[in-house]
Amino acid sequence: MNTEKPYRRRDLLGIRELAASDIIGILDTAENFREISNREVKKVPALRGKTVINLFFESSTRTRTSFELAAKRLSADAVNISVSSSSLSKGETLLDTAANLDAMAPDCIVVRHSSAGVPHRLAKVSRAAIVNAGDGANEHPTQALLDAMTIREHKGQIDGLSVAIIGDIVHSRVARSNIHLLTKLGATVRVAGPRTLVPKDFSYLIHDQEFAPGAKPLEVCEHVEDAIRGADVVMILRIQRERQDSAYFPSLREYSIHYGLTNERLDLARRDAIVLHPGPMNRGIEIASDVADSSRSLILDQVKYGVAVRMAVLYLATGGSAVNS
């Protein structure tokens, strides 16, 4: 199979693979696309004649809708395919599926899968640009990009900020992508949560980046309060109920008491701190309802910027040039 990608087609497998300048290029391009969603006619011809396949092996209403709208607002033809992962094990392998889709000559395949590494394997065998829409516990790059866009909008820049990420760090692709992105753009990240879900040596995640001597761009905190204290941004991760069944913590009730974001805990952050959550929220568990509904919570902004970020990602993946600001 010829897997050489046509001129200018680029995969987005993760934030880990990107340079800071790539990230800024995507964010600046997304800024340019933002206003399209505010128009009466929400469509530009940038990707007319291009085909985008949303290949979702894991259900997701929000991310899939966001990618679909992004493609359509750029005039691309978007096709959604939902595959239950179990049907794969019945015969057709992942690579068969990829080869079949590739034969229909799409320009871009957006893939979400519960197994880490699937986009990387597809990128090896597909001529389409592969965009990772979340792979297992590995990465969710467009989520980190839309979070960054939200932060930039409210804080002006990312460099120099202190960001707390609270919750199930080890199983979180959102945490991994955000940590890569934020540290590459100069923020300091502190993570905290139950020890069962926050490995002590997690700072290895960014071992291959270079930082100033003595800098601690990623710190694992013993207590949630230590992570939140003085933070400019507090990012709360969704807690999965099945973690309770696997004995990572005793109960959702206890989790909410010891690790949930309450107004009291948020008071430890800077007065102008903002709160992010990738959704969907478990109100009253990882985030108290009054925090979620407060003016500091930017959860709907995140969703809004998601479309613009995905427009930028699809545009760049299929050959567009980044905006230089």
């Binding site: 880490a116 792979d135 297992g136 590995n138 991994r176 040596d201 290895y204 995640l205 071992h207």
Partner: peptide, 10 residues
């Protein structure tokens, strides 16, 4: 270990 952290594999 460190690499499993990096790759998001259990």
């Amino acid at each position: 270990g460190k690499v499993s952290l990096l790759l998001g594999l259990k």
